[in-house]
Write a protein that binds this DNA or RNA. Structure first.
Lengths: 152, 152
DNA sequence: TATGAAAGACCGCTCCC
DNA sequence: GGGAGCGGTCTTTCATA
């Protein structure tokens, strides 16, 4: 888990695997003019170093009915209620991300819901039912024109 | 690409693959008491239906030096500058997500940077150099206690 | 139509150079 | 870092209910 300085080959491998985790090592070997064994060694090293943390399939949330994406800025009554509020938010499956932020809001969350009605339900019956929350501000995402990973 | 109503087996497969895309089909077959061929058929169908859009390795951005995560709310001088602004934002690799939102901001973006100095550079020399932008508000994320996918 | 079983091709892993 | 062999996995095909 110690630090490991990646080189250009590692970067190239990462970029390729970030687009498609199931690309064969032999294919990468050809592309970067090294042997498949080398690719394997590099990937293992990056796993060891904690750079590669796992693999995922990418899901199109809309096809599963989760059409509506929104962000909600939350202000707490007291900063000390932070931990407890996060715990409650975590119990709502619609809350997929939460950030503890500086700036206008105490907590900033991302919510996926199936419709405007569903979002309304999540807002009123779930999020705003948390006692520690003083106020919320909702930003509904109409479109997500950029959605990518950082380039190593 | 047409709609495809997923059943419980599909859901189970999705959930498993969302945690680890490289899990063998035979393992899933055992877990859900079906044959490996069936798993294969289901996965192919979900790919066809556009539910599964690909696979990715998960990267620990911090290990690559991208320590600082922040959100920036952007207000445009004119709503008509939207397309052009997105195009410019897209050219900055630090901008990993962008949303067109209702609410306080016209555009809402997520930015990853290597340090506070780097973030400052991105803000001043990249984002605020876009002429169509009237004002920005920055929310720096100190912690991300929740980070997950929607459960199918 | 969807599933299960088996065979062949392919891939990843390991050892040795 | 490169190359070869073994073991495991994926994919395909065919039979079945």
């Amino acid at each position: 888990m110690e630090n490991y300085q990646i080189d250009n080959l590692d970067k190239s491998i990462l970029q390729a695997l970030m687009n498609d985790a199931r690309i064969p090592y032999a294919e990468l070997a050809k592309r970067f003019s090294v042997s498949a064994g080398t690719i394997h060694v590099r990937v293992e090293k990056m796993k060891q170093a904690g750079i590669i943390t796992g693999t995922k399939v990418c899901i199109n949330a809309k096809k599963l009915g989760y059409d509506v994406c929104c962000f909600i800025g939350i202000n707490l009554k007291h900063a000390r209620d932070y931990q407890e509020t996060i715990a409650q938010l975590e119990s709502f499956e619609e809350v997929v991300e939460a950030y503890y932020t500086t700036g206008n809001y105490s907590i900033f969350i991302k919510v996926l819901s199936q419709s405007m009605d569903h979002l309304h339900d999540v807002l009123v019956n779930k999020i705003q039912s948390i006692e520690a929350i003083q106020s919320t501000e909702t930003l509904i995402s109409l479109q997500a024109p950029i959605m990518r990973e950082i380039q190593p």
